[in-house]
Write a protein that binds this DNA or RNA. Sequence first.
DNA 1: TGTACATCAGTGAACGCGCGTTCACTGATGTAC
DNA 2: TGTACATCAGTGAACGCGCGTTCACTGATGTAC
Lengths: 216, 216
Amino acid sequence: MSVTLTATDGRIIGERAAATRRRLLDATVKLLNTEGVLDLKVVDITREAGAAPATFYQYFADLDSAILALVDDATEDERPLAAMLDAPWTTAADWVRCREFVDAYGVYWNDHQRVITLRNLRADEGDASFRGARVRADLLIIRKMADMVRASQEAGRLPGLLDPFATAAGMRAMADRLFQHEASIRLRGTTREGLRTTIAAILFHTLSGIAPPVSG
Amino acid sequence: MSVTLTATDGRIIGERAAATRRRLLDATVKLLNTEGVLDLKVVDITREAGAAPATFYQYFADLDSAILALVDDATEDERPLAAMLDAPWTTAADWVRCREFVDAYGVYWNDHQRVITLRNLRADEGDASFRGARVRADLLIIRKMADMVRASQEAGRLPGLLDPFATAAGMRAMADRLFQHEASIRLRGTTREGLRTTIAAILFHTLSGIAPPVSG
DNA sequence: TGTACATCAGTGAACGCGCGTTCACTGATGTAC
DNA sequence: TGTACATCAGTGAACGCGCGTTCACTGATGTAC
């Protein structure tokens, strides 16, 4: 998975330069988290990273390509998550694994929330690079979930009128949004545990067709 | 529901001015749809509306207040949708009403998609006005759905471990996202009908605890 | 170990564009008599 | 019905700021001998 990094002029960069590049990316994430997606500026990023504006352009052609690098980071972190779905949930005992999956998903989401939000925004607006990145990431998880729906339908545990792909996409959307709004949902009296158990219960039932156990 | 409109200087505006204001709002929606959320400019809006930049500031203090006016429009359109949930789904026959709800939701979503996306973005970034607007709109639908979950739990059709509010929020998120990505989901072989039936089936089962009928 | 040179990495300062916003103004519409 | 005036509505042109981006440069690190 190790990639040879190059500067915008094509030069292969050394250790020190790689560290600077990383600092710029970290600063970008930090600003996305504190300032938000709508007014992210190259100048601010370099200031945050303690570098001159010109430095940014040594490593990235523009803001978009820096964001796309962060998007790739996020996608990599999604692979282990997808691997957790390799073994489908087929008995009530698998509830435990479903619950573990939700916890892992929460960590992933927390790390990359803003980058993913921005990626989706740019993809919705029709940018081809961001579209491709989203599709690639989405498929990692959704395909596995869709497989599970299909298997559950064949086993007679789920109704045939569910479209497996759409169901999987919907479940992912549900999880994303609940994590995203965790803060405001908790304001309304739900605990962190209660929220995650709810996400897990809906996932479990909708994908496997098995009712979750009576107590989480 | 009729509101007296005022210009930024406080004057009450007449018919002609109200039409201009409306033209500016319509142009804003149009640009949101064609250009996207990230580079919406006052200058572009006025150009699209066939007016001078200065005209914009006669009706709106800034871009945000124009967006908030559009957000209010969207929220109004959500009321009839919420009313459809007044009578809960308690028998398999209510599947028809669930399916109608999903269709109505699709129309609403299609009309206001971009405005809602922008509202959510600004709310996530912490803007108090947009936060308030989102909460107000969300509650219209989510409260009704949460009531349904609670009733289904009391009737023994749904497990108690589901948090009603979180479940409702998740269902709304799922529906939103599936409509939002309808285009890309359909690329993968799902029909428009199939998608809507899938949304309806998940909603129906998750909120009422009743399995949807075998054929949609 | 020291020195000269090559290459790598980072920067200060500036240019130019485009956007938000305002001001003093013009044109359109309504009203009194 | 026409005219004078008041009010409503819309605008052209400009200012100024801030951001993206670049260029010629300086400083840091590595390497040969």
